[in-house]
Design a protein around this nucleic acid. Structure first.
Lengths: 210, 210
DNA sequence: GGAATTTGCGAGCTATGACTCACATTGTCT
DNA sequence: AGACAATGTGAGTCATAGCTCGCAAATTCC
């Protein structure tokens, strides 16, 4: 199917109309992905949905991969923004309350466009440019790692890197499952979920303060 | 690319040669998947690698999806076997030691064929028959849920379903990241990883016993 | 107003890969 | 040995989807 070995961007040129075209393409990509799934999401279908021709699509994105990658980037940016805000709001609280706030923010982030998020997780191959799907985790790690440094005195785990890795991976995975595959046990009970995860974290970071 | 709307199996007929053919096809599928990735893994390539003709492939598997699904099933079976064994061996230990044993078993399970496991996680779309990739989680939940029931008195979390969900999801995600994306923090330090995860679990299930 | 440039169009070219089918080989049973 | 079934073969068919290219419309500039 693919003939050329893809390369870098193409026209980043963007005046008035073209910006709208790019937006329309990204929005259409999101819609087609969630409605049809990754492999049914052909560039022709996406262009049609955007009300744009295939030719225009390839004027702004060198190939399908780059198009989807751009959407991934936009989505990750939105999610990270929520986390950054939460980190600020939580700065003055005690550790348990802070953790609670961060877990809540993670849940909110996963609700931004959970259908799209699910497609990224379940169907989009993490290869080439699309490997950046996992950048979300890496960037989250960095943000939280810096935060943990500031809170060093309240955390009784020896190695901050390990502790951050464990917390970030855990909260991400639990939240993902909670939002995407709503477990019967906690169905819809968002606050109970947040409580439980917070207990898990605090019990790990501050053992003995049960 | 696909023309027909796939259906059920085909020939399950299996005498002497044919069993070997099926085995060869599954092995070849695993090798091609790990070496080339999911979308480079064409049925022609797989058949060639197996030393078999495409025609034979389609005698035993109605389509590519079914072939990969069969491989997924085999892999999940192997991993679950390790967990089942560990659950038996751990029956008489105290909860903390038991948790440690289960975490270790999870790590071992992820080492069975981690390259293949990575492909399943990162590249194989969870659709149709391939949705069974996630059966591993579901079956693990059931096994652990039953085990938790027996240990009810040692667990101070109110809702066993939630607790099981949290523990299983957490251990799976952490182990997966540890094996697949070896974090710098814990690089290669398997025992330290197991210690840390065990602390996380015990702190949650038995708060106050730090 | 006209020329140059940017943006948009979409039929069609091409590669690829899933799958078929008419035939060949091997194995089994009496 | 002969016959019938089981198993294996691989060139070829067909549908699809990524991508191009020659042209048209809209914008901008002088």
């Amino acid at each position: 199917m693919a003939r050329a070995i893809p390369t870098n961007p193409r026209k980043s040129a963007s005046q008035k109309r073209s910006l709208a075209t790019v937006e329309a393409l990204l929005d259409a990509t999101a819609r087609v992905l969630t409605r049809e799934g990754y492999d049914r999401a052909s560039t022709n279908r996406i262009a049609a949905t955007a009300g744009v021709s295939v030719g225009s699509l390839y004027q702004y994105f060198p190939n399908k991969e780059a198009l989807v990658a751009a959407l991934v980037e936009r989505h990750n940016r939105e999610m990270l923004e929520l986390l950054r805000d939460a980190l600020k709001e939580v700065a003055s609280l005690d550790l348990a309350a802070a953790m609670r706030g961060l877990v809540r923010a993670t849940v909110d982030a996963h609700l931004v466009d959970s259908a799209l998020h699910r497609i990224f997780a379940e169907q989009v191959p993490r290869m080439g440019q699309l490997a950046k799907i996992e950048d979300l985790q890496r960037e989250t790690f960095l943000l939280v790692r810096a935060y943990a440094e500031e809170r060093r005195s309240e955390i009784s785990v020896r190695d901050l890197d390990s502790a951050t890795f464990i917390c970030v991976t855990t909260v991400e995975a639990l939240t993902h499952e909670f939002i995407i595959n709503k477990p019967d046990a906690l169905d819809g009970d968002r606050d109970r979920f947040i409580d439980e995860v917070t207990r898990l974290l605090v019990g790990y970071l501050q053992p003995g303060r049960a």
